[in-house]
C-alpha cells in the first residue's frame, strides 16, 4: 500500500549504501548469547575476507563472554539472511553473498550461553 497523503509522497531512503562511505552495513549475532542484548551492527568493506570478519569483528565483539574461550566459529552453524549457509572464510563478504544490511547468525552447539543448553539464556 502507499501512504495516503495530501500531495506527492516519495522519498530517498535514509540508509542507502552510498551514505556509508564505501562500507556496507552488516548485522551479526552469536545466537543464544543473549547477555549481549541484541544483534550487532557494523559498517564493513564489501571486499573484507569473511575470515577477517570473524576474527577481527565478531570474535572481539563477544570476547568478554565466558564461552569465547572455547569457541571455534569455523565449526559454527551459519545463517545468512535467516537461511543456512556455509561461508568460505578466504573469500570476501561480497563473494560470500553478503550485501548491504545482510544478517549473519552463528550458532555453536555445545556453547549455548550462560545458563547452558536447557534454557540457553545469556
Amino acid at each position: 500500500m502507499s501512504v495516503k497523503s495530501i500531495g506527492d509522497y516519495s522519498f530517498t531512503p535514509k540508509d542507502k549504501v552510498e551514505n556509508f562511505h564505501g562500507n556496507m552495513l552488516v548485522y551479526m549475532q552469536w545466537e543464544k548469547h543473549l547477555s549481549f542484548c541484541a544483534p550487532l551492527a557494523f559498517p564493513l568493506p564489501p571486499d573484507m575476507p569473511f575470515g577477517d570478519l570473524v576474527a577481527g569483528v565478531l570474535a572481539p565483539a563477544y570476547a568478554v563472554h565466558p564461552d569465547s574461550e572455547n569457541v571455534d566459529f569455523e565449526k559454527g552453524e551459519w545463517q545468512l539472511n535467516n537461511v543456512p549457509f556455509t561461508p568460505d572464510f578466504s573469500k570476501s563478504l561480497q563473494e560470500n553473498g553478503l550485501s548491504h544490511k545482510s544478517v549473519i547468525r552463528v550458532r555453536t552447539p555445545g556453547l549455548e550461553g550462560l545458563a547452558g543448553a536447557d534454557s540457553a539464556a545469556g
Binding site: Q29, S35, A41, F42, P66, L114, A115, S119, A121, G122
Partner: peptide
C-alpha cells in the same frame, strides 16, 4: 529464575570483580 537470573548473576559477578560489563558494539535496530 530460568532465563534472566543467570545473566544478571554473571553481570553482578563481573562488576564485583571490577570488570563491569559494557557492550562495546552498536546494536541492530
Amino acid at each position: 529464575e530460568k532465563h534472566y537470573e543467570p545473566r544478571f548473576d554473571h553481570f553482578t559477578a563481573k562488576k564485583e570483580a571490577g570488570e563491569r560489563f559494557f557492550n562495546g558494539s552498536l546494536p541492530m535496530l
